[in-house]
């Protein structure tokens, strides 16, 4: 048991580059697998949380742009959403990586300042940008759909009360949209976390073997030639993560719907949406 504690000490933060440099190669124990894969989960959580948090705002802007009457706003938003929803995330990762690699190594001169570019090719930045854009497109489509299904009566009631413009949007339209979109958005969040496992399999190199949960799982499967231990461990971690996301989003969902009588409150239903 104490040796397992040592393993946790050595490899608990290995995915961030803290602790033992060299990954276990021979006589791999179950404890080592659980610890290292768990430390890889830190990356999945990092990518998922940041992409979702930033994507939420951009998605709102995109949804509004898509609903706008002016074609100058609508067309670009539609094109953006189509490109990111219509192509595989896997290809988007590759394309982004190859494009970022082409940036000049020495940085870009900009008003006498030199902008460093090399960090963009690292997974923590490059892949995060792709995930951010991708989840923005998917969420924007969800938000736009919800905006289109805001009941007419709500808008008319607002009109009757003399609520118009920004305050109508902020107090009537947007909260209703969010409430209607929330179950689908929960799904999006879950599958964004799942999509983060693609990062280190798609061009972005795992610098100094700092990878995510699936990266370490496939490392172990390769080393032990036994897929029946490491993959179920990742699966277990992700089930826990999924349950946590459902709990958190379910709490928000209850808050968003707290003014409604019980029977009319929408319940979260998890539908698979998978690979993007």
């Amino acid at each position: 048991m104490s040796s397992c504690l040592e393993t946790v000490h050595d490899y608990g933060l290995r995915a961030l580059g803290i602790g033992e440099r060299i990954l276990p190669k021979t006589d791999i124990t179950l404890c080592e697998q659980v610890t290292l894969i768990g430390s890889g989960m830190l990356w999945n959580i990092y990518f998922g949380v940041l992409a979702l948090a930033a994507g939420f705002f951009f998605a709102n802007a995109l949804a509004m742009a898509k609903a706008a009457r002016s074609p100058w706003l609508r067309r670009p938003a539609e094109l953006f959403i189509f490109v990111f929803r219509g192509s595989p995330l896997f290809i988007q990762f590759f394309l982004a990586y190859e494009a970022l690699v082409l940036l000049p190594r020495s940085g870009i001169e900009f008003w006498g300042l030199t902008l460093e570019t090399s960090w963009l090719t690292r997974a923590w930045a490059g892949a995060l940008i792709v995930l951010f854009l991708n989840t923005s497109a998917y969420s924007a489509e969800i938000f736009h759909g919800a905006l289109m299904s805001v009941p007419r009566g709500d808008i008319e009631a607002a009109k009757a009360y003399g609520i118009t413009g920004w305050s109508r949007f902020r107090r009537i339209l947007w909260p209703t949209m969010l409430r209607l979109a929330w179950p689908a958005y929960t799904n999006e969040a879950i599958f964004l976390f799942h999509a983060t496992t693609l990062v280190f399999f798609s061009g972005f190199p795992a610098y100094r073997q700092k990878g995510d949960a699936l990266y370490y799982a496939s490392y172990f499967a390769e080393k032990t030639f036994n897929p029946f231990i490491s993959y179920p461990i990742v699966a277990g971690y992700f089930v826990v993560l999924t349950l946590a996301v459902i709990a958190l989003f379910g709490w928000v969902n209850r808050r968003l719907n707290r003014h409604l009588p019980g029977a009319r409150r929408p319940r979260l239903r998890i539908r698979p949406q998978i690979i993007r």
């Binding site: 879950i190 976390f193 799942h194 999509a195 496992t197 693609l198 399999f201 699936l214 799982a217 496939s218 499967a221 897929p227 029946f228 993959y231 990742v234 699966a235 992700f238 089930v239 999924t242 349950l243 998890i270 698979p272 998978i274 690979i275």
Partner: peptide, 20 residues
Amino acid sequence: MVRGVPDIVFFLFVPIALDQ
């Protein structure tokens, strides 16, 4: 099974498991 676990895990797992 596909709701909680990333599908890529299955893509990596199923071929080796089936082969073995």
